[in-house]
Design a protein around this nucleic acid. Structure first.
Length: 711
DNA sequence: GTCTAATCAAAGGA
DNA sequence: CTCCTTTGATTAGA
């Protein structure tokens, strides 16, 4: 098969006219960067096939070409024909497909990094807006005040332009509780230094891969969470929201820690269909969808002499009256505009910008990425964005809305052969609310109510009826404390521990900063986390009791293809979320116990050697835990005993200390390394085997980084 | 080059 | 839970 340019290559034998296929090709701002020949420009190549997207899905080893290893046969035919007819029907007045060479305009870096690099942290533009609207001017002043309140990050240029503008109204002071100012820049720099990302290389900026996107998102999350934490701790201004999501992404954008920074149609390397995101800016950082707010992303393409906009991606998140019908492969998308954001005033939509781009893409027949915004039920006002793969636009029309105003509508149909994404969410929703049964269900809740959430036992793979018998216990039980010493007294936080409360002993024990965000997400990893204990007066829902509160996600134990039973979640899991602790029996490390432990497949041993987890903040020192703890979950255990090993884990463990009456107990808590989409198996690294044990357990994790065996 | 308008955001409070 | 206010970033296009 010829080198695929783009997702069109996934239908090699489909009877589509070639001109249309070529038509979708290398767009003007697609500038391939080749790891092996960095200086080469594709523009001068006679045969410009090089734009090969890394397969977006699956753990394909390096060097695999197929874009998608599936499909070709079913369903694609009728889709194509319909598409074709739709196009010809609408073709009047639109330029015909352009020959390939017209795309090779030698203006590659037009919107490249150079202009961006000069962008200041905070534009001075907002200050000059402050003329028209009195109601608005105050807010603008406030924002300026805020920006300069951070001091160090404001560039000289900004200071100059700000001071040149006259401030109107009463300047509002930013009150800072601790007297400590948050230095956003240095927070970010520290984290970037830690991850050795001060210089993010151009190759990774231009084209992502799984590792790069994961790194960018991780660092984004770290900076965002750290800012959240610092602002929570120091900020008592009303109205609280200081948008750490935007600030941290802005920092990364200006520092060039981003990937797929040039627009392109089709899949984006390093992002799989089904991947989930929790902020719009995350889409931006990985190059999936550039605008920070707008729902339609487009780029312009040179057509002979003029330029045409072409849609590359859309976000459908219910802002307009999109049709979310039963068929998850179809999306009726509303055009943009027609509503004044400030005052809600409405008018006709116009065929310009994104709307025009969608119209052009209809005739062009190019792939359009679709990101579905879904309400996050676990996190009230929040939203989760699911990359639902590529669609093609099949129809467009204009209709009148309730107010009789013009609205454009676009009918998009999902390209066949892509992994389940949005449809999977719909299925899960049905399993949950009972409108559809979970296929292969053996037991609805194998914990028999021991957890607050039921844990289904499922086998849709083979005939096995369940794992060997064990007793479900929700937590690790100590017969005697890990350490009898009680070095601290409990807190008196009746309303739960609060960040910034320096008198709270829990804050103090955790180096002055609570380990969890208000949403219960782990902020930074540490050698040990000190949670509230028995003598603390904080309520059970205190944010410093996250690992004691039990499993919050809807998990299921399922039969894997070749690795026995495994664990996965119906719910999406945000990076840093607590998943479960390792429950079981403490194994005393005597010679005989150790022998028994060796044929126990349900051992957790903190004393093993663990590779430093590059993905996790501050874990670079955790080669070996500074304490002995061996847990067996063979006869007593919880969901954790089903978590398999992987050399590319999505879960890591973290020691947690909880004090009880008799002393201090150490627990092992599992947290998500990155965002985990529903139904993706939860796996962690079991540790590196000693020489003696090497080769005993063959690893089947399938990761590119697989070391072949595990402990 | 600069600048601004347009945009299916996110959080918190009422 | 919905609505409203506040604080906002990115990019296309002027």
């Amino acid at each position: 098969m010829e080198q695929g340019f783009n997702s069109d290559s996934n239908a090699p034998s489909a009877p589509i006219d070639k001109s249309r296929v070529y038509d979708v090709k290398p767009l003007r701002s697609l500038v391939p960067v080749f790891p092996n020949t960095p200086g080469m420009s594709s523009i001068s190549t006679p045969n410009p096939t090089p734009f090969v997207c890394v397969p977006p899905s699956g753990p394909f080893p390096a060097g695999v070409q197929p874009f998608y290893p599936f499909m070709v046969s079913n369903g694609s035919q009728p889709t194509m024909t319909r598409n074709h007819s739709a196009n010809t029907g609408f073709n009047s007045g639109i330029p015909d497909p352009v020959p390939l060479n017209s795309f090779r305009t030698p203006t590659p870096q037009a919107n490249g990094g150079s202009s961006r690099a000069k962008r200041a942290y905070k534009t001075s533009g907002s200050a000059s807006v402050v003329i028209e609207d009195d109601g608005y001017s105050d807010a603008q002043d406030q924002s300026d005040q805020y920006a300069s309140g951070f001091g160090t990050h404001v560039t000289d240029a900004d200071d100059a332009s700000n001071s040149g503008k006259k401030r109107r109204g009463r300047p509002k002071r930013r009150v800072v509780g601790n007297g400590a100012e948050i230095d956003v820049e240095s927070v970010a720099n520290n984290i970037l230094t830690l991850f050795k990302l001060k210089e993010f290389d151009e190759i990774r900026k231009a084209n992502g891969d799984k590792d790069t996107t994961a790194t960018v998102l991780l660092v984004y999350d770290l900076i965002r969470r750290t800012l959240t934490q610092l602002e929570e701790a120091s900020d008592n201004t009303p109205g609280g929201a200081r948008r750490p999501d935007l600030k941290s992404s802005n920092l990364l954008m200006t520092k060039g820690v981003r990937t797929n920074n040039l627009k392109r149609t089709g899949h984006v390397p390093g992002v799989d269909v089904g991947d989930i995101f929790f902020f719009r800016m995350e889409l931006c950082l990985v190059g999936l969808h550039a605008p920070s707010m707008a729902g339609i992303d487009y780029m312009s393409v040179k057509v002979t002499v003029s330029e045409d906009p072409v849609a590359v991606s859309i976000v459908s998140s219910g802002g307009y009256d999109d049709d979310d019908g039963d068929d998850t492969n179809v999306l009726i998308y509303s055009g943009q505009g027609g509503v004044q954001r400030r005052d809600g005033q409405m008018f006709d939509q116009k065929l310009e910008r994104g709307n025009l781009a969608l119209e052009k893409s209809l005739h062009r027949g190019n792939d359009v990425r679709v990101i579905r915004g879904i309400k996050d039920t676990s996190n009230a006002p929040g939203k989760i964005y699911v990359y639902d793969g590529v669609y093609k636009i099949h129809e467009s029309w204009a209709e009148k809305n309730k107010s009789g105003l013009n609205v454009f509508k676009y009918k998009l149909i999902r390209q066949p052969g892509q992994p389940e994404a949005y449809s999977l969410w719909k299925s899960i929703q049905q399993w949950r609310d009972g409108t559809a049964g979970r296929p292969g269900l053996i037991i609805p809740d194998l914990t028999s109510g021991a957890e607050t959430q039921p844990v289904a036992l499922v086998n849709d793979t083979d005939g096995e009826k369940g794992p060997a018998h064990f007793t479900y216990v929700a937590s690790l039980k100590y017969s005697q404390p890990f350490s009898a010493s009680k070095p601290f007294s409990g807190c008196r936080c009746l309303g739960g521990c609060q960040p910034g409360d320096s008198s709270c002993p829990c804050n103090q024990r955790n180096d002055g900063l609570l380990p969890y965000s208000s949403a219960g997400v782990l902020l930074t990893t540490k050698p040990v986390i000190h949670e509230c204990g028995q003598s603390c007066q904080s309520p059970p829902n205190c944010r410093n009791r996250i690992s004691q509160a039990g499993v919050k996600f809807r998990l299921e134990v399922f039969k894997t293809k070749n690795r026995g039973w495994g664990l996965r979640s119906w719910d999406p899991i945000r990076a840093g979320s607590f998943i479960c602790e390792y429950a079981g029996d403490i194994v005393k490390v005597t010679a005989s116990d150790f022998e028994n432990a060796n044929d126990d497949n349900y051992i957790f041993d903190a004393g093993r050697y663990y590779e430093p987890l590059e993905r996790v903040y501050d874990s670079n020192s955790s080669k070996k835990a500074p304490f002995p703890l061996v847990i067996s979950a063979k006869s007593n255990g919880n969901v954790s005993r089903f978590m398999n090993h992987s050399c590319s884990p999505n879960v890591f463990w973290q020691p947690v200390l909880r004090e009880s009456n008799s002393g201090v107990c150490l627990h092992i808590a599992f947290f998500a390394i990155h965002h985990i989409p529903p139904m993706q198996e939860l796996v962690y690294n079991y540790g590196i085997p000693t020489e003696a044990d090497r080769g005993k357990k063959k690893c089947l994790c399938g990761s590119v980084k697989c070391r072949g065996h595990f402990y």
